[in-house]
């Protein structure tokens, strides 16, 4: 009886020590699920989800504060990916937050109208606008995420959102069109 109690206590103590050591040695910094969610978001930093950037939205999803369908730039593909990651139901995109564009948009500054006020530069979350005070500004198209955050501050309304120019290299082979009806008739 005594031996049994001692053995069990000894084992409990030993495992406790191992677990305690492991908890310190293998401690995970931050919340890894937030990183995983953040990696699936399109990183436009547009704030249409009502959070100030993609990472805050990822944190909100991880904490269960926000549904997964508030990201218009990501569209249905992002919702499906998030649903897969979090093992939740796929939702319809929430239209209240904005519209998804199949071809991503890019900002373009009408250089003749631009007065060089630098307001759009301050608004751009990814530093994709180049220019200085009282000089013309221009958008680095490759870096623009199409977040539209530069539109409201512009006092002369000289920024337009245009679809990214598609070239022949962007063309995608289509999947063979499989007409279900014809297949069934056969």
């Amino acid at each position: 009886m005594i031996v049994a109690i001692l053995t069990i206590s000894l084992m409990a103590g030993l495992f406790g020590l191992i677990l305690g050591y492991a908890a310190i040695r293998f401690k995970v910094e931050g919340n890894p699920i937030v990183d995983q969610i953040d990696a699936l978001l399109p990183q436009t930093q547009c704030g249409q989800c009502t959070y100030p950037g993609c990472r805050p939205y990822a944190e909100a999803i991880a904490n269960g504060e926000a549904p997964i369908n508030q990201c218009p730039p990501g569209g249905q593909a992002t919702i499906v990916a998030l649903a897969g990651l979090l093992d939740v139901e796929v939702l319809e995109p929430n239209q209240e937050h904005g519209e998804h564009h199949d071809i991503p948009l890019v900002a373009i500054i009408d250089e003749a109208t631009c007065i060089g006020c630098t307001l759009c530069i301050q608004a751009c979350p990814v530093d994709a606008i180049l220019g200085s005070a009282k000089h013309m500004h221009t958008v680095i198209a490759d870096e623009c995420t199409g977040c539209e955050l530069c539109l409201p501050p512009c006092p002369v309304d000289c920024i337009d959102m245009v679809p990214i120019k598609q070239s022949i290299d962007d063309w995608k082979w289509p999947l063979p069109t499989l007409s279900e009806e014809i297949v069934h008739e056969h």
Binding site: D38, P42, Q43, T44, Q45, E143, W173, L175
Partner: peptide
Amino acid sequence: QYYRAEKSEIRTARQAHFKSDRARLRFEF
């Protein structure tokens, strides 16, 4: 044709991922 379509889908997804990684870096910076 299925494989070609899938290859171009994956390439597009990779490009989008590359772009979003870049945007994240620039945002954090």
